[in-house]
């Protein structure tokens, strides 16, 4: 097990109170696993992803443990996390297009960053060049400023930089949204390549584009309103989903190309609950076609089949 998360709970502090964006998430990743993380916007997928590397100003760690290669990540401690960032956990941000300092030559920025992390730039240099070749970036990019690169080039440069120190866990947050379809495909294939070459051990790919996930992800985890709904191998999620929400999500996708809308699901009546004051129990129960009285209790995230985790009382009943 490379990543093991227990009861991770993270809230957002707002003036109106705490937003329960991530509640008691427990799951694990095996070595070499690429897990796709899907759900409507606001379901907590980005919260889950970013909380593993950097809690932003308004995010509050509430409880839970994160074990990476058997070592606990002190995610509540911004300074303490510094040691793990980049080396153990790394991030390809949503904003890859603007992630690099516009007034520094890329090579110089990489150099300064590497030195600041107490690594030897000259030692890393040959590997850096090999990886640039791998993603088909000319080595001259190191002498350029970010604005001199195209969108796709920036995306690849950020991928190379983020994985340069061979992190154990890589979080890729909506990496493909700014790119056109053919570039998206290339980028996703590169991610898999990085895993195959063991630049990264395991990966969480956050996206709203399931077609992307079906190409590269070994497993898919679906979230709803801050709770985990289901996690299973990719094929299983697409063909034999068990959680009512996942089923609705998959069935609402157009048959050609598996994509779902970022917006509210139209096929399902109702709206996701406000997480400022979330309903007790299963948060999907108001919209769920099969909900019953038991659903006022929070369902555990249980492994019903091998590697197939579901949080639904109805499913447990049928399975039992």
């Amino acid at each position: 097990m490379s990543l093991n998360i227990e009861n991770l709970t993270v809230y957002y502090q707002t003036l109106k109170g705490e937003v329960h964006a991530l509640e008691d998430a427990s799951f694990s990743l095996t070595d070499g696993e690429i897990m796709g993380l899907a759900g409507e916007s606001g379901c907590g997928k980005t919260t889950l992803g970013t909380s593993l590397i950097l809690l932003n100003g308004r995010m509050r760690y509430i409880r839970g443990t994160v074990l990476l290669d058997g070592q606990e990540l002190p995610i509540w401690d911004n300074r303490g996390m510094d040691e793990f960032r980049f080396k153990q956990v790394s991030l390809i941000p949503q904003y890859a297009m603007s992630a690099m300092n516009p007034t520094r030559r890329i090579g110089k920025m990489v150099h300064e960053l590497i030195e600041a992390r107490h690594e030897d730039y000259n030692e890393i240099m040959p590997e850096l060049k090999r990886r640039l070749d791998l993603v088909e970036l000319p080595q001259e990019v190191l002498k350029l400023y970010p604005i001199e690169l195209s969108g796709g080039m920036k995306q690849r440069m950020v991928m190379v930089l983020s994985t340069l120190l061979n992190p154990s866990l890589l979080i890729a947050d909506e990496i493909t949204s700014a790119l056109d379809v053919s570039t998206q495909k290339a980028v996703v294939e590169m991610l898999a390549e990085f895993r195959d070459r063991k630049f990264v051990k395991s990966m969480i790919v956050i996206t709203h584009d399931i077609s992307i996930l079906s190409q590269v992800a070994d497993s898919i985890m679906v979230m709803y309103a801050g709770q985990l709904s289901e996690k299973a191998p990719t094929e299983t999620i697409i063909r034999h989903a068990r959680h009512p929400y996942t089923k609705l999500l998959i069935s609402s996708l157009p048959k050609v190309g598996i994509k779902y809308s970022e917006e509210i699901l139209h096929g399902i009546p109702g709206k996701p609950p406000l997480l400022l004051d979330p309903p007790i129990g299963c948060r999907f129960r108001d919209r769920c076609p099969v909900a019953y009285e038991k659903c006022t209790q929070v369902p555990p995230f249980l492994e019903l089949d091998k590697d197939h985790f579901v949080a639904c009382w109805k499913e447990f009943e049928e399975h039992a």
Partner: peptide, 17 residues
């Protein structure tokens, strides 16, 4: 608050840099 600052932070760059 700019993106490049957040990215550096996520890569564990020291505040000084």
């Amino acid at each position: 608050e700019a993106d490049y600052a957040h990215y550096l932070e996520a890569l564990g760059a020291p505040r000084k840099l």
